[in-house]
Every structure is written in C-alpha cells, then in structure tokens.
Design a protein around this nucleic acid. Structure first.
Lengths: 181, 181
DNA sequence: AATTTTATGTCAGCCTTGTTGACATAAAAT
DNA sequence: ATTTTATGTCAACAAGGCTGACATAAAATT
C-alpha cells in the first residue's frame, strides 16, 4: 500500500494559511469559481457530442466573426493541429463556415452559421445567469471592480485580446445602460 | 477542403455583443484570467515532471492537512481512478504521506511532507503575485467585492467546500471536532 | 457471529484534448 | 523564379479525464 521507497517523511499537520504572505483565499476561490462556471456548458455540450474545446472555438468565432485561423490560435494558445481536429467537426456539422480572406486569399475567415450562433447563445446563457446571480445586489462600481480585477489577471501583453471593452463590451449596437442580466 | 456535406449555410457577420442580455464581457474575462492564472504554475510543474492535476492535489492537501481521500475527491470532482494515478506519484516521490484515520482506520488521511509544503508554496507564489498585481490600488472593500463575486460563482451547495474564510483564512486552529467538509 | 456496507486501492481500456514532427499546397512576397 | 506565409493533414504520443470490474480491510448492521 504505497510504502515509501525512501525514509518516511513526517506529515505536516498545520494548514497552509495566508501568513506566508500568499493569497490562498483568492487562489482557491478562482479554482472553485472556474470549476463551476465551466460545468454548466459542459453538460450541454455532451448532449451535442462536443467538448470544452468546441465551446471555446464557437465562443470566439461568434464574438469575432471573420477572425482568421491564426488569430484564433493566438487567442486559444493551442497548436494548429489541436485546433484542426475540433474545428473540422464544427465545420462538417455546420456550426462554423470558412470564407477565403478577401485581401489575402490564403487566410480562412471563420464565421458562425445560424446554428453556430444558436449554440453560442445556448452555452453562454447559463454562464451569464450564474454571473448575474453572483453580481446581484452589486453596484455598477462594484461590477467595474470585478472586471478590472479580471483584466488585471491577464498577462499585460495579451490584454489586446480582450475586446478592449470599447469594441466588444460596450458594443456598437445597443443597450446603452450595459446592464446585462 | 472541408466541403460542406449539406447545403452551405450563410456566414453570420455580426459579432455577438451583449445586447442579447448575455454577459459576454465577464464570460470572456474569466476565460483569459484563468488561462493566464494557471500558466504560471504550469511552467514550474513541468520542471518537476508534474501537471496541473498534481498541483490541485498538493494545494488542497496543504490547505486541509488530514483530509481523507473521499473528501479530496469531493473537492476536485474527479473519480478515484483519476485521483489515484496522480496521487500515487506524489506519495511515491515523497510530497504527500498517508496516515490511517484514527477514528476510522479504513480512511487515509493525507498530509504534505516538508517537500510537499515547499512545492505548494512555490506554486502559489506566482499566482499570489499575479493577484496582488491585479488588486494593486484596490481598497479592502473592493477586495471584498471580488471575493464575494467569486464565491457567488460557486454552486451554493458546494460553498461549504470553500474554507468559509473563518476556518481557512482567519483561524487556523478552530473546529476541534474536525468536522470539515 | 455472520453479513453487508463503506473507504480505499488497482487493473484494464477508452476518450478528449493537448503536444511534436513532418510534409503538402496555394497564394503572397521578394 | 524563388521564398515565405497561412493553412491543412498525417502520425504518434502524453496527460488527465472517464467507466467497469474486482479486491481488501474495517466498520456497521442484522
């Protein structure tokens, strides 16, 4: 039963608490929050025979229609071979279409189909509900605090990937209050 | 080149913005924040030949020394077979030790060794730095806002898993009954 | 005391999603 | 005409999930 192959070490019995100047509270909260945040769409995805990888692609293609394969790779930080396997399934099953780049015809611009847009919305809905619940009874300043915290967690050189809030969050089309939920 | 097997669908060219009442901004921020948040320890872990699964185990065993295998499974939400593979490596390489439960000798209480504690601290350090940076110039009320948001993201019935802040953040010695979980 | 349930371990095999390396093609750039 | 770039694709591999089946020791129940 897993006998130590070495000299047995003493078990440490004191819990690791923040007195080392380390922020275990938020580290742990991020783990739990993300675990449950992703569990909602994961359940839906299995009904479609898809996984979390499909979700990410569908999400970003819907958020930035026309983005190229290279741009998508850069956002997801995976290899093209990893992407290809999953993207192909989404294209074959008509959730995403490719269009040759108008300026550079080597590029493949990625767009959602109506089906793909529906899926993106269906996956986002429970996540958005969860967020709304977590932000219930929260002032708009407090909401800003949360957004700024999350932005601050992103590598500075990659913050350009976040739709800089002028382009993707404050959005061209509507909802002058920006009150989602 | 991925010819659609169906009738070709029209590409949708409008970006998915929050006017559907869905909070894409924070959904996306959570993805980016978590992606970069986990990248710090991931890099360290490869030096040890470990992965993210090892990290989670080492983290929670250090935070709740003496937790049982069943409790750990419940926190991680994985199967015992998944856990076993990774836990065995940590035990064999002397980062974690098992102790027979004093009350119930079927149970295996998990404790970190000195080596295991060091590893937990090494992995938490860059994450804590990242959090500190994201919270720089933040009032303590704003910090509370962030914590409450993250807690609100967790499934209500699982919030007991969060060290309720009284047990794990403030008071290392409480709960004489050991009624964790 | 005998039986059943529980906590844990373990073997075997499968799936998803990541990786690397190699090579093909068409279009752009030089 | 040649090289570089954007993309696709094949093959093999690894990590870390999963299920199902079975073993054991200890606790709980009858």
């Amino acid at each position: 039963m897993t006998k130590p192959k070495h000299q047995p070490s003493e078990p440490i019995r004191t819990p690791l608490t923040p007195h080392e100047g380390i922020d275990f509270g938020i580290i742990e909260l991020l783990f739990f929050a993300y675990r449950d945040f992703t569990s909602d769409p994961d359940q839906i995805l299995t009904e479609y025979g898809f996984g979390r990888a499909h979700h990410r692609i569908v999400h970003f293609v819907n958020r930035r229609p026309g983005l190229t394969v290279a741009e998508l790779l850069d956002v997801l930080k995976i290899t093209k071979q990893s992407l290809a396997r999953v993207l192909k399934q989404l294209i074959d099953s008509d959730y995403i279409v490719q269009v040759k780049g108008p300026r550079d015809r080597r590029q493949r611009e990625l767009y959602p189909t109506a089906k793909g847009r529906e899926l993106a919305l269906a996956l986002a809905a429970p996540q958005s509900r969860r967020i709304a619940r977590a932000l219930a009874e929260t002032t708009s300043h407090e909401r800003d605090t949360v957004e700024q915290f999350l932005q601050g967690m992103v590598n500075p050189e990659l913050r350009t990937q976040i739709g800089s809030r002028s382009r993707l969050s404050e959005d061209p089309c509507g909802d002058p209050d920006g009150n989602a939920g």
